[in-house]
Structure formats: structure tokens, C-alpha cells
Nucleic acid binder design. Structure first.
Lengths: 174, 174
DNA sequence: CTCGATGGTTTGAATACTAAACCTGCTGCT
DNA sequence: AGCAGCAGGTTTAGTATTCAAACCATCGAG
């Protein structure tokens, strides 16, 4: 499967991954949330090569995750800013950072801390249920087809126990 | 910068991205949470090529995100299961799926719905502050160096307004 | 009229990915 | 005994991406 086919998949995860699913894009987005906005700053902070940076920024602009805004005339110079669609990536970024803080930190502790302006405390991000407010755990979540379901390849499997494989004949018949 | 250097970065996001930051790995993890566990099943559902699948599974096992468990002898056959470290990726996966549901769904609606067994309702994942429980928005979060901070390249910039660029001499001096 | 700042693009070599075929152990059928 | 089939890979050769380094364009300042 190629990149361009990925966005056609009947799966929200595949579609999101088609936009942000490579390492450079994710790191660019991290810096966006740290208020980095200019080509040269991205390039220096990330150690990304210039052609790739240009390519990824263009892609993010095409997807309306970033907008290119002129910040001066003569000569025209642009900066890249998160759109609302881009700002909505915040939970993804926070979840990724938090997992790294928990599972990949060295002994010295986490490199960055986050303060919540609302309550004034350093915090961890927690993912909760929109309906009851309880923290989500994978075993308490059941997945089922929604109105946009189509491709049965993306439905969950039912195999909870080591099931015997289906034979090729059965597969062909189904 | 190469992949192997990424995990040495003084940044939780970079370290996490070094583990899960490519499209195939993310899609494999999606399927893991849908209870897919076998090589052939991953391969068929994802449309991934076999060498890449083998490579990514090996990587995830090395990182202790998955474990390889034999589910039969003669001939020995293995399945791949999420470890606790892997299960902890759930918020990332949910955040990615949710963004796709909001920003990338077609008119027919979202492909999958999630039911929370605790309250019994279909829900959206919401990211909240661990201290006050309020939903997080990027503008209300302030980032500052933590105990493991080291590399100033990963601190946020302070430029809120179009700032004049620093001259090369100043840079060299600092 | 040359230098530096900014935001790119071009080039050729190194790396990664793809598709298709092949390999290994074992079972069960004939 | 011999062969087909299953599961989980590996090999190979061609294609696509990425890398590093250099180059280009625009404009202002000296």
C-alpha cells in the first residue's frame, strides 16, 4: 500500500496516519506547539534536512493543519501557524509525550514539565470518557461498526482464544 | 538525523517517535488493540508487505511493546500480544482515531464507534488535567524545563510576535 | 556592488520499501 | 511414502525516499 492509498482507507486511524504518520511530521508538530513557526527555526531545532522540511510543511499546509502567513513584506517572509485543525492534534501530542515520559525517560527525570494555567499545577494528561468522566482503559472499551463502516477488514477480530486457522477452502467459500 | 539517533534525544516526544513513529507501526498497533495477534492476520488486514511486517514486529518486541508468545507446539507458532507498556499506548491510539473521526470522516459518518463498558454509553475520548480534571487546551498549558532537561534546542521559543532574526554574530557569541 | 538573512530547490549517493518468490517445520490425506 | 497445505518468516531485484551538500532568489544595509 502506498501513502496516497492510505487516506482512502475506511478507517479513521489510517486517515490520520496518512497526514501525521511519519517521524518528521510528528516532530514538526511538537515544535509547532512549542511556538516554533519559521523554516530556519524548525530546521535548526530538528536537524531535519531542508528538502524534507519543505516537503512536510507543504503537506501540512495542504491538509489545513498549518497555514502559511506572511510576517513581513520586502522581502516576503512566511511563518507557519497551527490552524484549529492543527490545534486539535494537541491530545495526540500530549499522549505521545506522556508515554515517553513514563516509558522512555532516563533516571534524571522528564525533560519537560507541563503546568495547567487553569489550576496552576504541574499535571499529567489523562484520557477519560466523555460520558462518565472515568479514565479509559483498553479492556473497558468495546468497538463496534459505526454509520461509516464499510470495509470488514477493519473490524475487530473475535478470537480471544488460540483459534484454529481457517482452511483455504473455507476462506474461498466465504 | 537517523532513526537510531532519535532515541538519544533529550525529548520524550522524539523518544516515543523513535518507537512508534512510522505509519506501519501505528497501523499495527491499531490492529493490536482490535485483538489481532498473528502474523498472517496483520499481513492480510493491513496490506503490508511481509518483510516490513516482520521488521516492525521485531522492533516492537525489542522495545517491549509486544511479546511473542507461542500458542502451539509442533510446529511452534507464535502470536504477538501487547505488554503493559504496549497497552499504555491506548491514549495515543484513541487520540489519533478521534482526530480522524472529527477531521477526516466522510459524510457517512465514522467507521467505528466506541462503547465504554463502565457507563454503557458510546463515547469520545477527552484529555483532561490529572490535577483538576478540566479538559486540556493548548493555550492553557505552559511548558517548562524538568529535572531531565538538557538540550536547549527542545525548550519552547518565546517569540510571540514577529521577532527580528538574530544576526549570525550574536548567535556565534551566545 | 557585495554580504548576510530567509526560505526555499537541485543534485547524486545512501537507505528503505515493494512485490513476488522461496524456505522451513510440521500435519494430515491418500 | 509422497504430496498439499498452513504459519511464519527470509531472499532478491527493482523502485521510491531520504540524506548531505551545494545552489538560487529576493531584498536591505553598508
Amino acid at each position: 500500500m502506498r501513502w496516497n492509498e492510505l487516506s482512502d482507507e475506511n478507517c479513521s486511524m489510517a486517515r490520520t496516519v496518512s497526514v501525521i504518520g511519519d517521524r518528521w511530521t510528528l516532530l514538526i508538530l511538537r515544535d509547532c506547539f512549542l511556538r516554533v513557526r519559521r523554516f530556519e527555526d524548525f530546521q535548526e531545532r530538528l536537524g531535519i534536512t531542508r528538502p524534507i522540511l519543505a516537503n512536510r510543511l507543504k503537506k501540512l499546509v495542504n491538509e489545513f493543519v498549518l497555514v502559511k502567513v506572511p510576517y513581513q513584506q520586502r522581502p516576503v517572509r512566511y511563518e507557519y501557524r497551527l490552524t484549529q485543525k492543527g490545534l486539535d492534534l494537541f491530545p495526540i501530542v500530549m499522549a505521545i509525550v506522556h508515554w515517553g515520559d513514563i516509558h522512555m525517560a532516563d533516571k534524571k527525570g522528564r525533560p519537560l514539565l507541563h503546568t495547567h494555567n487553569v489550576c496552576g499545577k504541574d499535571f499529567d494528561p489523562v484520557m477519560v470518557c466523555s460520558e462518565c468522566g472515568e479514565p479509559l482503559s483498553p479492556r473497558q472499551v468495546h468497538v463496534h461498526p459505526g454509520p461509516g463502516a464499510k470495509d470488514p477488514r477493519h473490524l475487530p477480530l473475535d478470537t480471544d482464544l488460540p483459534a484454529p486457522r481457517r482452511l483455504a477452502k473455507e476462506k474461498a467459500a466465504s
